[in-house]
């Protein structure tokens, strides 16, 4: 979990750790199932050490991390503002698969088209899962939008695979 995400989720108001987790769960829907609770607390501790967060013990005085109220320090607030303004985007790692096909073909390790087929089956299964999850979401759920993004990405990937297959079929018949 990226540190900035955790920071930003606290920007609205100081919160308990479990409140933070609920908020993330709400936003991610079924995708949030993969989220490790411990990981969030590790991140919170790190941010606290870096001076981006201030933690207050709760009224009952227990020193457990899920009983603490976390709030942004001014430095933390500045970091969040910078992050919001940042233009970053996850890079799709297509080069690996592309090189896999070339290597498989040139060294005769495998039929690139069979590789494409296998990959497509996998992507279709993922697409089916993502789609089912999307259809299962209640109306106006925040998570549905994220799932829509997943579906569209998978679609784009599948189309790229189609192009790969066409290209490799062409090369095979052309050579």
């Amino acid at each position: 979990m990226q540190q900035e995400v955790v920071l930003a989720m606290l920007a609205k108001e100081p919160s308990y750790g479990y409140q933070l987790r609920a908020r993330l769960r709400d936003a991610l829907g079924p995708l949030g199932d993969a989220m490790n609770a411990g990981q969030i607390y590790v991140t919170l501790t790190r941010l606290e050490k870096a001076g981006l967060l201030a933690a207050e013990k709760s009224a009952d005085g227990a020193d457990r991390s899920d009983r603490k109220v976390y709030a942004l320090t001014p430095k933390g607030q500045q970091r969040v503002a910078e992050w919001i303004a940042e233009v970053s985007w996850p890079r799709p790692d297509l080069a690996e698969f592309h090189l896999k096909l070339i290597a498989a073909a040139s060294a005769g390790l495998a039929d690139p088209i069979a590789v494409v087929d296998t990959q497509r089956r996998e992507l279709l299964r993922r697409l089916r899962d993502a789609q089912r999850a999307a259809l299962a979401e209640p109306e106006h759920s925040k998570a549905a939008l994220l799932l829509e993004g997943v579906v569209l990405r998978l679609q784009a990937d599948l189309r790229w695979l189609e192009a790969c297959e066409k290209n490799w079929t062409h090369r095979r018949s052309g050579s």
Binding site: M1, L28, P30, L31, G32, D33, A34, M35, N36, P90, R120, R121, L124, R125, R126, R128, D129, A130, R132, A133, L146, G149, V150, R153, L154
Partner: peptide, 19 residues
């Protein structure tokens, strides 16, 4: 391609969540 089976558990990986 047989599409039946599969779980939503892996979904997190699709968006860079989870391990």
């Amino acid at each position: 391609t047989r599409l039946t089976g599969g779980t939503t558990g892996k979904l997190g990986a699709l968006v860079g969540l989870g391990d």
